[in-house]
């Protein structure tokens, strides 16, 4: 287990190094950072001074070294547009995105898993057919269409929910949360539904397919032959065996949701990282873009490592094998 963890952490570090290199190349080679950062009427002396301050006269590997050293300390430089440290900008925006994404993930699991189980167990009921049909819509309608339709119905026509923004937020030790105010929760509803609609159908279809597969296995037939109740067979034995792929997909989807929250955040003007990134792109704000790239990759790597750890919790076969490795090592 420990050996496995160390191996995974090393792999993660390697991935991060590669990503950091791309981010660094972006900063260094997309446009001229000096021109971008100085006013148009800057003198040659000012240019030379900034060039020296940014370390652009040093050889490339040394520059990359500086970049890594700074990045590890959370320093991604100054935003061209806001003239503020990028790390502050990210720290302000991160809670908004994380709250929205986590709420969407929880919602898609809470709704998707029971729907998947139901459609697998009662394949021929009318409700299953309905779920299947609706899920087809959910999986094929693009997010921005859902978002705009929701705004049209619930904000414009019914005037129940705010069409943009995050509502009131409360500061909790540096983390601004919208979960504690009524307006914050109301503002959360539509973006979360928009973001999770696809996920719900994905999880539902995945659970359904896996469950049908597991229900055919010998150990399920044997569990029935032992006279276990349907509940014990379905939820005790079958469901747990379907969870491995669900964990994998959920893990990947959390990363994807954070990365692709951009669209939802733009539609709802949600003050998260995605919106920050969109603004950075339109202003060619390279430091923000490279920091965003590094952040999202980091989240991906962390989540994937957690997913791998979860496998150990769910599947005893993995646990024992590493146990043997440990004793032999």
């Amino acid at each position: 287990m420990i050996a496995f963890l160390i191996r995974r952490l090393l792999q993660g570090a390697l991935v991060m190094l590669a990503v950091a290199f791309i981010a660094f190349s972006m900063f260094r080679f997309v446009g001229d950072p000096v021109t971008n950062m100085l006013p148009q009427d800057a003198t040659l002396e000012q240019r030379a001074e900034l060039q020296a301050r940014l370390g652009l006269n040093e050889p490339l590997p040394v520059q990359f070294g500086y970049f890594i050293t700074n990045a590890v300390q959370g320093d991604f430089g100054i935003s061209y547009r806001n003239q503020r440290p990028v790390s502050n900008l990210i720290a302000e925006r991160l809670p908004a995105t994380m709250e929205m994404v986590l709420a969407a993930v929880v919602l898609s699991l809470v709704i998707g898993i029971p729907m998947g189980v139901y459609t697998a167990l009662r394949r021929d009921s009318w409700l299953s057919h309905l779920f299947q049909a609706v899920s087809l819509a959910g999986i094929s309608v693009p997010t921005f269409v859902t978002g705009i339709l929701l705004i049209l119905v619930f904000s414009v026509w019914l005037n129940w929910l705010p069409s943009f923004g995050r509502g009131e937020v409360v500061e909790l030790g540096g983390w601004s949360t919208g979960l504690l105010t009524v307006s914050g929760l109301k503002a959360l509803i539509m973006p979360v539904i928009t973001l999770s609609l696809f996920q719900i159908t994905l999880i539902m279809r995945l659970v359904r397919a896996e469950m049908l597969e597991v229900l055919k296995t010998d150990y399920i037939r044997f569990a029935r032959a032992r006279g276990l109740t349907n509940r014990a067979v379905h939820f005790g034995h079958a469901l747990r065996n379907t969870l491995m792929p669900v964990i994998t997909i959920t893990g990947l989807q959390i990363g994807a949701l954070i990365a692709f929250a951009i669209i939802t955040e733009t539609v709802f003007q949600w003050p998260g990282m995605g919106l920050l990134f969109m603004q950075a792109v339109s202003f060619v704000d390279i430091p923000v873009m490279s920091a965003y790239l590094v952040m999202v990759s980091l989240i991906f790597v962390v989540i994937n490592t957690i997913v791998d750890m979860l496998y150990f919790v769910v599947d005893p076969r993995l646990r024992v094998d590493t146990g043997k490795n440990n004793t032999s090592a």
Partner: peptide
């Protein structure tokens, strides 16, 4: 089933829940 009629299946490798 299980109470009055017990069943033994062919493949012991797959008749037990691995988890």
């Amino acid at each position: 089933r299980g109470r009055r009629i017990g069943a033994i299946f062919q493949d012991p490798l797959t008749s037990l829940n691995p988890l």
